[in-house]
Design a protein around this nucleic acid. Structure first.
Length: 570
DNA sequence: TTTAGGG
DNA sequence: CCCTAAA
């Protein structure tokens, strides 16, 4: 499943003389063609919106808007079949409209819930959603945790965005800030925030990393991911990775070989967006600096708006996994997919009254987000991919060969990220002939090969920052191990580039060095007792093959001659 | 760039 | 996974 190519080794022994290798220019071109646009991730906030008139001792008329997940009345529940969803009907998302149900770019609407209280809500956990500047995998853990609130409605994470005039550090203090502060500041903070970690951006709490990622916390991932164009023909039995190339358009963006790619490079100054992520610069500063510039004189009162985003949702996550796979491996796959999506970088989208607000310089009042307007019933947030500019000529040429609506959508994304619009329901689902909503878990693509895009160019870090960065840890799945073993069996232990090309060509996040390293650890793992092994257990038969292949190639040294193994491996 | 190994 | 000497 990881790679189709490894299966191509015939009984007669696949021959791969060095000369057979495609010229570098050709290889390069292949990779170029694979460049694709960004993952059209749209994580949405479904929710209620609480407009609460709250008199503050200090400020008086500060208001809070609470966004949480609830169904908007306009969307009958029966339009949102959730039966097949991986989460229960008690889930907070139950009944929540699909982001596409209203055909409006994945934004979810909100309604008022005057009874909701901010007190007691957890805040910090969700921070991870918005953090794009941290490389530690804790982001992912936060993410999954946050995405998977308890079925029974256990505590759900919230993000509180106080929009107003102070630098409060407590949710409870929302609206209690100094009336003398800039009125256009936007303060994002969490209840348990601390100065040391705060970066002016919602970010995860950096707790000690857990050795393993992907566990039961992922089980209620609500999202489902549609690899556009990759699943339209359910009758098409071809694997996604060989029958459709759209996957690549969406997920592959790199040039091989990869070197020192930093998936979680954070936002830099060059980004014109208002939402910076500069931990150091904003250290101890709880204000997003940019929002205060242009309309400082506009506000006439000191009203605050509280936004409480209870949870983000990530639609469209597709997993393909054998029936015989373990639940654990499925969980890990989902984890991988989520990791990949997160690794691509996200940005926040805002929709008010069905219209996407792109002008970041507008004040909330101008936009219609105030404590007394009527627009609050249609305020939506979304997480969107930080799209990268792909060389258009190449993409265009690609599209001319594989024209399809989805690709064109993708194309649009690339050309103008700011004008990205999610596909309409017809676009995204109608062709699938499915009644599923976006949350259905539909087997389409293998998560094993999901590869993140290269870091957004705009978010490039300085050399120094890059040097300090480390790629996210991505444990090999059993599927990947199997592919690796298969490839090494056939190619030997000294041809990692070939292994990469043959078996992991499409796994952009696996470099040949990674594969070599993995083989090294596999050999080690196979030699130690099962009790000493950690992480996802590798089937013993695979480990046996590892030892066997390793012994063979070590002994015969045939790999030095770039010859193929005997038929014993066939 | 790729391989091979140590960190 | 990272770093890098060597090829």
């Amino acid at each position: 499943m990881v790679s189709h190519k490894v299966l191509e080794f015939g009984d007669d022994g696949y021959k791969l003389p060095a000369q057979a290798r495609a010229p570098r220019s050709v290889r390069k071109r292949r990779i170029y063609e694979k460049k694709m646009c960004a993952i059209d991730l749209l994580a949405t906030v479904a929710g209620n919106l609480l407009l609460e008139s709250e008199s503050s001792v200090n400020v008086g008329e500060d208001k809070c808007v609470v966004v949480q997940n609830t169904v908007k009345k306009e969307f009958p529940a029966d339009e949102n079949p959730v039966k097949a969803l991986p989460f229960s009907k008690d889930d907070i998302y139950q009944g929540s409209p699909s982001p596409f149900d209203n055909g409006q770019c994945g934004f979810s609407s909100v309604i008022t819930n005057p009874n909701h209280s901010l007190v007691g809500d957890k805040v910090e956990e969700v921070e991870g959603f918005s953090n794009l500047g941290r490389s530690d995998s804790c982001k992912v853990r936060n993410f999954s945790k946050d995405l998977n609130p308890g079925v029974n409605g256990d505590v759900k994470p919230d993000v509180v965005a106080s929009i107003g005039s102070n630098s409060s550090t407590e949710v409870g203090a929302c609206g209690n800030g100094s009336p003398n502060d800039s009125r256009d500041d936007v303060n994002l903070f969490s209840r348990n925030d601390d100065d040391e970690n705060f970066s002016g951006y919602i970010r995860p709490r950096l707790t000690r990393p857990v050795p393993r990622i992907g566990d039961r916390r992922i089980r209620k991932i609500l999202a489902s991911r549609h690899w556009k164009g990759g699943s339209k023909n359910s009758a098409d039995a071809k694997p996604w990775y060989c029958s459709k190339r759209s996957y690549y358009l969406h997920n592959h963006q790199k040039s091989y070989p990869i070197k020192k790619r930093k998936y979680f490079d954070s936002v830099s100054d060059s980004n014109s967006d208002d939402y910076h992520l500069q931990g150091k610069t904003h250290k101890g500063n709880r204000t997003l600096s940019s929002m205060k510039s242009r309309n400082a004189s506009y506000v006439s009162r000191d009203h605050h708006v509280r936004l409480r985003i209870k949870s983000f949702r990530v639609p469209e996550l597709f997993i393909e996994i054998p029936e015989t796979a373990t639940v654990g491996s499925l969980k890990r796959m989902v984890m991988e997919a989520v990791t990949t999506i997160l690794g691509d970088g996200l940005r926040v989208g805002l929709m008010v009254q069905g219209k996407k607000v792109r002008d970041d310089s507008q004040t909330l009042l101008q936009t219609g987000i105030s404590e007394e307007n009527t627009h609050l019933d249609s305020l939506g947030f979304s997480l969107e991919p930080s799209l990268e500019t792909t060389p258009q000529p190449l993409l265009s040429s690609y599209l001319s060969e594989h024209a399809c609506d989805d690709l064109m959508l993708c194309h649009d994304n690339v050309v103008d990220p700011d004008h990205y619009s999610a596909p309409s329901p017809a676009d995204s689902f109608g062709k699938l002939g499915s009644t599923d909503d976006s949350r259905a878990l539909v087997p389409i693509a293998s998560a094993a090969l999901l590869a993140p895009r290269a870091p957004n160019r705009k978010f490039k870090r300085t050399e120094q920052q890059q040097a300090a960065h480390r790629r996210i840890r991505r444990p090999f799945s059993v599927t990947e191990v199997e592919a690796l073993v298969q490839a090494v069996e056939n190619l030997g232990t000294g041809r990692w580039r070939d292994v990469k090309v043959r078996a992991f060509e499409d796994a952009d996040h696996r470099t040949y060095v990674d594969l070599k390293d993995k083989w090294k650890t596999l050999v080690h793992t196979a030699r130690i007792s099962p009790q000493q092994r950690r992480g996802e257990p590798v089937p013993q038969d695979l480990l046996d093959r590892v030892l066997k292949a390793h012994a063979y190639w070590s002994q015969h040294l045939m790999h030095q001659l770039q010859t193929e193994p005997p038929s014993s491996y066939a």
